[in-house]
Design a protein around this nucleic acid. Structure first.
Length: 577
RNA sequence: GCGCUCUUAGCUCAGCUGGAUAGAGCAUCGGUUUUCUAAACCGAGGGUCGGUGGUUCGAGUCCACCAGAGCGCACCA
């Protein structure tokens, strides 16, 4: 139940009706009209700007329009305690207790659907995220995008959409060859005591390769590791599989499970690249040509090559993009075009890609291709997650892939825990860089917003325990005839914002709004809890060691909302802390 | 040189697709435990929303220009 939409619809109905009676003129669209949360200290529950929007076309001041509308809004509405018109022309409405009782009853009897956005058309989404190269375990840099993608999926699923979570495995190309070679040298090191060529900058030096090498040796006794070219094919498959095993374990520890892993090699081998390029050829978007050096670039080092290009400039990109290398093998972009064609052929309504900030420059070309192939500009939405700045002992901590000294997801989780990792990574908008201070997160875990929200839930559970109820069970209440105090209504108002929070998160794919909302709700609850110290009537358990129905319902609603939000974030709500 | 993102309190950041008196946390200072969990609460100080113009009833939010920070810009993936 979304009380803001309820009144927005009502107000729109009213103005449409009195427009028909020629009492008022309407602008072309009514999108500017909203029903919102008023700032504190106005002593009202909801507020609308309708009279400001109608002011111009009617050539009347907002205050004059408001006076007319107020009459119609009040008419036959038993929910309204009073309605006032304020300064520029806001119409402020305060509800009767009766309204809040109704609200409470609705969301408690249908708690599973509270917050679900029913206005959205149910769609089929494909969300691609993580897609880290299968050359080793995940590190902290992958973590943010992974959690972002997972929680966006959770929000969409919460809103009853169909979602497929996918991982694109880049198991094709030079990096994989170098990776496989590295495994090969580690194997020779183990078997023949030949020193790993650490000076070769193309190789992967990380220690995890030793474990991968050991596993491969132990599980493949028949293979002979004498000549690289002889075992290259088998070893590539084995090495990638070992990497994916590590990655899947990392993801699982983060609480993330993908529905599908798509292999780049498979796409290339199935000739899907040719298929996709043919599609673009038919649209006259493929040609052989040369790319010019960008301005400002030293063009002495620039080698112009004739190659197969996609006309992404037709879609606003700054240059056309190469599909084929000079040795005629496909570029990464080419196989990604094929992968996106593959996605499109599986008939999803919307594709979402979660990318790291370092791949932001890639967005234009891939959205161009999808637009070209699908004919729709917003078929593919790319969401960028900015960098995570690691800080250790007040100093930035640089990760170096070369030296192999980077902090892995495993390190992170074993130090901070899955829940804190998820909550902290989400607590900021994905558009801004995130400071992740190891020493702080470790030392001051009590200042962690995660615990603040969990503690709220634990406090509520403790009340249920004291009166011999289980917080997990539904309540058995028939009469909703309560008289909530202002302090309680203040929290109910916050609860009423939950559907708005979900709507905004889902519409704009901004999951960070959820932890922030949960924090605010918890803050109000903690505040209320402490009032019980001064004011006996605000305590949940009374002198007879029982709890009144209104308080019980009140607590249940708060805990339901927190639980629901924490489920979306993907963290636990312990009943005791 | 070009593109993307950012600039809000001492620090880290919210600000719900243009609304009313711009909000939190941390830090600083001062308070609250015989009573449902103090992992909590209450209070105080702290602001030219990077700058300048523009759009309109109304701008932290939209547009233009400028300044600063980060990321990226070939056949890597």
């Amino acid at each position: 139940m979304n009380i803001y939409d309820l009144y927005l619809d009502k107000i729109k109905d009213i103005i449409i009706k009195i427009n028909k009676d020629d009492l008022i003129k309407l602008p072309e669209n009514l999108n500017g009209i909203n029903v919102d949360i008023p700032p504190p200290n106005f002593n009202c529950d909801i507020s609308t700007n309708v009279s400001m929007v109608l002011s111009k076309i009617n050539k009347k001041t907002p205050l004059e329009i408001a006076e007319v509308l107020v009459k119609f809004i009040k008419q036959d509405d038993t929910n309204i305690e009073n309605i006032t018109v304020v300064k520029p022309g806001f119409i402020n409405i305060k509800f009767k207790n009766y309204f809040w009782n109704n609200f409470v009853e609705k969301i408690i009897t249908d708690h599973k659907n509270f917050g679900v956005n029913n206005k959205e058309k149910k769609k089929k989404y494909l969300i691609e995220f993580v897609s880290a190269n299968p050359t080793g375990p995940l590190h902290v840099g992958h973590c943010r995008g992974a959690i972002l993608g997972d929680v966006i999926s959770n929000i969409l699923i919460f809103n009853k959409h169909e979602v497929s979570k996918e991982y694109y495995v880049n198991d094709y190309g030079n990096q994989i060859i170098n990776f496989t070679k590295s495994v090969f040298f580690r194997i020779k090191e183990i078997l023949n005591n030949e020193k790993f060529p650490i000076e070769n900058k193309d190789l992967y030096p990380g220690d995890y390769l030793i474990d991968i090498a050991k596993n491969i040796i132990n599980n493949n006794k028949k293979l002979k590791f004498t000549n690289f070219d002889d075992v290259a094919n088998d070893l590539t498959i084995l090495s990638v599989a070992e990497s994916l095993k590590l990655i899947k374990t990392n993801l699982q520890n983060l609480g993330i499970v993908h529905n599908k892993f798509s292999s780049e090699t498979e796409i290339v081998n199935n000739n899907e690249v040719e298929k996709a390029i043919d599609k673009l050829k038919n649209k006259n978007l493929i040609y052989e040509g040369k790319i010019k050096a960008p301005k400002g670039e030293d063009d002495k080092n620039w080698i112009e090559r004739k190659q197969l290009l996609f006309k992404s400039t037709e879609f606003g990109d700054d240059k056309d993009r190469a599909l084929q290398k000079s040795d005629k093998s496909w570029t990464y972009f080419a196989s990604d075009v094929a992968y996106h064609n593959n996605k499109l052929e599986r008939n999803f309504d919307t594709l979402i890609n979660i990318l790291g900030a370092d791949h932001a420059g890639y967005i234009k070309r891939i959205t161009s291709v999808v637009e070209a192939m699908s004919g729709s500009k917003d078929k593919l939405i790319c969401k960028v997650s900015q960098l995570v700045k690691l800080i250790k002992d007040d100093k930035p901590f640089k990760m170096s892939k070369r030296k192999g000294d980077y902090i892995t997801v495993e390190d992170l989780i074993s130090e901070v825990g899955k829940d804190a990792t998820r909550f902290i990574m989400l607590n900021r908008s994905s558009d801004v860089e995130l400071d992740f201070d190891f020493t702080k997160v470790k030392e001051k875990s009590k200042d962690n917003p995660l615990y603040y929200v969990q503690y709220c839930y634990a406090r509520i559970s403790s009340v249920f325990r004291h009166v011999n109820l289980d917080i997990k069970n539904d309540l058995n209440i028939t009469k909703y005839n309560f008289n909530y105090s202002d302090a309680e209504i203040d929290i109910l108002k916050k609860i009423s914002e939950w559907p708005k929070c979900i709507e905004a998160s889902s519409l704009r794919l901004e999951p960070h709004r959820i932890p922030i909302y949960l924090y605010e709700l918890s803050s109000k609850f903690h505040s209320y809890w402490n009032m019980g110290k001064e004011d006996e009537s605000k305590r949940f358990i009374n002198i007879n060691k029982t709890i009144s129905d209104d308080k019980l319902v009140f607590l249940k609603i708060i805990s339901n909302t927190i639980k629901s939000g924490m489920n979306i974030v993907g963290v636990n709500t312990p009943e005791q802390m």
